[in-house]
Computed example of a mutant assay.
Amino acid sequence: MTTEYQHIVVAVDGSKASEKAFKKAIAIAKRNNAQLIISHVVDTKTISTAETYDQSLINRSETYATQLLEDYQRQASAKGVTNAETHIDYGSPKVRIPKHVAKKFDADLIICGATGLNAVERFLIGSVSENITRYASCDVLVVRSEQDEDE
């Protein structure tokens, strides 16, 4: 039995780790002739302050996300991925990616970068990639960067 992925979600945030995950996602999407969903979650917890929602910060975050995703979509097209689309979501990336984005697109694979959190941060809040792995109902590929391998 050969397993082919048909709907691949790649989570991107502009970091080196997500850049590496995106490059791997392109290769896997091409090999499987799969749909590639390039997703960015605007982390609303980091935008909201104690009393108010900072609308200008939300607007800047949306502009950044749109530009980031358009750039990734251009790269995917240039590399020969014919079925790629972008998706912006809002909330906590570690929850939204596995529980909402993956379900919305019927993903059978989620690809994300390993985060560079230190041991204390991982203990307190857990990394995004750990949570995606824990809550996803499909396969998850966590792509390590060179820095992660040195730790």
Rank of each mutant, 00 (worst) to 15 (best):
T2N: 03
T3W: 15
E4Y: 09
Y5I: 07
Q6S: 12
Q6G: 14
Q6A: 12
H7A: 12
V9T: 08
V9D: 04
V9Q: 04
A11D: 02
G14E: 00
K16R: 15
K16F: 07
S18M: 10
E19Q: 13
K20D: 11
K20H: 15
K20V: 06
A21V: 05
A21E: 03
A21M: 05
F22I: 05
K23A: 00
A25Q: 12
I26R: 01
A27K: 08
A27D: 12
I28V: 07
I28S: 04
N32T: 02
N32V: 09
N33Q: 02
S39G: 13
S39I: 01
S39A: 11
V41L: 00
V42P: 02
V42Q: 01
T44V: 14
T44Q: 05
K45V: 06
T46I: 12
S48V: 11
A50N: 10
E51P: 01
E51A: 08
T52D: 10
T52S: 15
Y53D: 15
Y53H: 10
S56M: 08
S56H: 11
L57I: 06
T63Q: 14
Y64D: 02
A65I: 08
A65V: 12
T66W: 09
Q67G: 15
Q67F: 12
L69G: 09
A76S: 00
S77G: 14
G80T: 01
V81G: 03
V81L: 05
T82Q: 06
N83A: 02
A84T: 14
E85L: 12
T86C: 05
T86I: 11
D89A: 10
G91P: 07
G91W: 07
K94G: 03
R96G: 00
I97E: 00
K99S: 12
K99N: 14
V101L: 04
A102S: 03
A102P: 12
K103N: 05
K103R: 12
F105Y: 13
D106F: 13
A107Y: 08
D108P: 07
L109Y: 01
I110F: 11
I110G: 04
G113P: 05
A114P: 14
T115W: 09
L117T: 05
L117V: 10
N118V: 07
N118Q: 00
V120D: 09
V120M: 10
E121L: 09
R122D: 03
L124S: 03
I125T: 06
V128A: 09
S129E: 11
I132L: 08
I132W: 02
T133N: 03
T133L: 01
R134C: 02
A136L: 09
D139M: 09
D139L: 11
L141I: 12
L141M: 14
V143Q: 06
V143P: 11
R144V: 13
S145A: 10
E149L: 15
D150A: 15
D150G: 12
